[in-house]
């Protein structure tokens, strides 16, 4: 059994080398297919990152009248936090607001004078509310209409990025759909090419196969080299894809970080962490599909 296995492996390696250009084309197509799948995967992830980045910036600021005392602020804060959709509430006290204003405009005499003329703080406290999901803001804003809070509210300011979010969502859905159809298309093309390569390899070996059958070679012995060849195509295709994707993600990673300025997303790091799993799964899928294809191609030939 072992000696047979060794002979089969040797035969498939010989085939691979003998039909060198055929092997090159087949492997390249498989690699290309896998590279595009990975690029689409990255685009998909980036769309997610973009959504996150935008969502992070959304918040509702509630400016209260100076008459709102600390206990009102505290009550509002805890009532907001009691809502499950609220992620974070940051309170800025009236004094703090004033200090910030003065710090921001140290040279603006009008402001400085106005404050000192009034003799008291004209600003009120404010609350910055962050929701878990962008869809929750309308409900949160509505909850502030409550009669016990409404009189204190000077202004509610909701930077509505919902249009932007919806747009990104649409784009990311489109990316996802394109990714799936392009990957499927590439998969079909690759399988046709693998199918064809195996047929050609079988054709170049038709004499040998005929003799093998004549002298009583078992079916698996005749079949195995072609199946191993398909495995070899998949393995090399995956390795080439990985060899392209890693340097590529290293190269474009910084520009992505610039684009979404400040995002923590690290493309190369992502592949370093997940690469084994991603390329492993891609190899397994490619190997499964190509060996099945190869098996069918040989089977059809042997059935005559």
């Amino acid at each position: 059994m072992f000696i047979s296995f060794f002979r089969v492996i040797k035969a498939s390696l010989q085939d691979f080398v003998r039909n060198f250009w055929l092997s090159v084309v087949t492997t390249s197509i498989l690699a290309l297919a896998l590279i595009s799948v990975n690029i689409l995967l990255v685009l998909n992830i980036l769309a997610g990152v973009a959504l996150d980045a935008v969502s992070q910036r959304i918040s509702v600021s509630v400016y209260l009248k100076p008459t709102a005392g600390e206990e009102v602020v505290a009550a509002m804060k805890s009532s907001l936090l009691a809502q499950p959709s609220v992620m974070e509430v940051t309170v800025t006290s009236a004094d703090e607001a004033l200090r910030k204003l003065q710090e921001r405009h140290p040279d603006n005499e009008a402001i400085q004078n106005a404050v000192s003329e009034l003799g008291k703080n004209p600003l009120g406290p404010s609350l910055a509310v962050k929701a878990r999901s962008t869809n929750d803001y309308p409900a949160i804003l509505a909850s502030l209409e409550h009669p016990s809070y409404a009189p204190y509210i000077q202004e509610k300011n909701f930077d509505d990025h919902r249009d932007l979010i919806a747009r990104i969502r649409r784009i990311s859905e489109k990316v996802e759909r394109t990714a799936i159809s392009v990957s499927a298309l590439f998969a079909i093309i690759s399988l046709l090419i693998v199918w064809n390569s195996i047929r050609i390899t079988i054709y170049t070996h038709r004499e040998e196969i005929g003799i093998m059958r004549l002298v009583g070679a078992s079916a698996w012995f005749i079949r195995m080299p072609y199946i191993i060849e398909a495995l070899l195509y998949s393995l090399l295709g995956t390795l080439i894809a990985a060899a392209v994707i890693f340097p590529l993600s290293g190269a474009v990673g910084p520009s992505i970080r610039n684009f979404f300025d400040g995002t923590q997303f690290d493309l190369l790091g992502f592949f370093e962490r997940e690469g084994w799993r991603i390329f492993g799964i891609e190899f397994l899928v490619a190997a499964a599909l190509t060996t099945i294809t190869s098996g069918i191609a040989v089977g059809r030939y042997l059935k005559r």
Partner: peptide, 18 residues
């Protein structure tokens, strides 16, 4: 098989049957 020697041709029949 033209690319095999006579020895290899004969041995082939044994190889492929394990």
């Amino acid at each position: 098989l033209p690319q095999k020697t006579i020895y290899e041709n004969v041995a082939f029949a044994l190889e492929v049957s394990g």
